[in-house]
Structure formats: C-alpha cells, structure tokens
Design a protein around this nucleic acid. Sequence first.
DNA 1: TCAAGGTTCTACATTGCGTAGAACCTTTGC
DNA 2: GCAAAGGTTCTACGCAATGTAGAACCTTGA
Lengths: 123, 123
Amino acid sequence: MATLGELERTVMDLLWENPEAVTANALRDMLARRTHGEHASKELAVTTVLTVLSRLEKKGLVERARDTRPHRYQAVTSREEHTADLMHEVLGSAPNREAVLARFLGSVSDGEAATLRKLLGHS
Amino acid sequence: MATLGELERTVMDLLWENPEAVTANALRDMLARRTHGEHASKELAVTTVLTVLSRLEKKGLVERARDTRPHRYQAVTSREEHTADLMHEVLGSAPNREAVLARFLGSVSDGEAATLRKLLGHS
DNA sequence: TCAAGGTTCTACATTGCGTAGAACCTTTGC
DNA sequence: GCAAAGGTTCTACGCAATGTAGAACCTTGA
C-alpha cells in the first residue's frame, strides 16, 4: 500500500511541485516535458493519466474536485508530510522502536543532527 | 526493491527472532505454528519456503550456508538495522530532508523524543 | 547402489502498475 | 436544440512481483 509505481511517483512529484489543483490535460503536458527533457515527445494518452490519478485517489494521496468540469486534482498532503508518514509507517512495524531510532540517527549527517537537536529542544 | 510480500515478511520476522541459522524445514514448521496460532495446520510445501528464501537471498536480506548439507539460512542484518535502512531510503528520496525530519519528529512520542535527545547529545 | 531427503527448475494464479481504446457523459457553438 | 469537441469511466491487455508447489535433479548414508 505504500509503494508507488514509477509513473505514479512522477505524477505525485508534479502535483507536489504545483500547489494549485490541475487538470489531467495539464498533467499530461507536464509529464511530457518532465520525462523527456523539453522537446515535445512521448505524450501519454490522457486516459493513462486519468487512470493513474484514479488509483492515486483511491490510495488517498490525491484529491479530486468533481464539481468543476474538467476535474482538478491536487495532492492531499505535502511531500514532506507524506515522506514523514512513510517513515512512521516503516518504523511502526518494528518491536523495539528506540533501537531502530538509534541506528537511524547513527547515519544522519552532522548538519541534520544539529537540526534535530534544535527541533527537539533542550532537555 | 524495498517492499516485501506477506510471506517474505513473515519469514524475515522468524529469521530475525532466531539468531542461529535455520534450515528450510525448521522454517516451514515455525511458519505453520506462527500463521495459524499453534494447532498444526496449513503447512506450506518446503519448496515454497525454499523459493521464498532464494528470493530473499537474491534481495540481499538472507545469507545461506551452502557448505552444510541441509543449507542453513539467516538474516544478513538485524531487524533494527533493516528498518533504519528503510527509513533512510524513504528519507533519501526527498528534496528537503530537514523539513521531513521536522514533521517526523512532530509525531514521535515524548518518551522517544527524550531518547533521541540523549542519543544526539546536548548541543 | 539405491532410497530418503534436500535443492533447483519450471510453472501457474493473483495482484499491482503502465498503458490505452471504446463507450459514455457534458458543454458549447451554432 | 443539437451535434461536435472535449472530458470521464469501463474494460482490457502486457509485464513484473509474489505465493504456491510439482517435477526433476543431486547427495549421502546404509
């Protein structure tokens, strides 16, 4: 339930980069540019985009405005929130969470460790 | 590459609970007990277990001793290490890691936050 | 050397994802 | 009011991963 396919991920990336809700057609265009660096190419069928969007909607990652005529789509949560949720999902399935967190911290960069300290506040 | 199937995950759980290397047959028995609460039932074919073990080996999660006759299998990394690796994998695919970490910390229990502070040391 | 037990090969069903045609519904320009 | 243009849903196919296991092949002990 957590894993997205390649296209699904790309679509999510585009939605995350675009705060406003977009249409399937707009997404199709963005995808064409994104995937094949500028020069128009390999446009996917709109139905393909729509299928993917429906699946993402079913997964709870995308929200669709059904009231406007060309439906408009947007990500339900921010990319950061989603990623953090995924991390919690991974962590949640572990018996000894603290041991996992310890190892996790072990391979975090110094700069990030500093940030974490700041975020956690002083004891 | 990160996602495991249901059976694969169960097998990994058993291997993680058992420090010593075990045979496919032993695993088959453990699976029977685990999956259907005690009373012997639904034993999987040994070949099924072997297939799963081979796949897990290919994924680098399981190590197999080929020198002993009934081959013996064991997890390559601890469950904690594996989980931490997964968390890093999830985090790695994000542009603004610090923002993700911030949100992640936001939903960590107080006790765990305290542990994290300790692990990070005081600024 | 041969039977018992272990391993590898091959295979099939199911499910998720990429992909899109065909059919169906809406809107809009006349 | 109606037909064409455009949008949405249904259905479907191919491919890869996973659960499952039979058939064939290899090893070893009696």
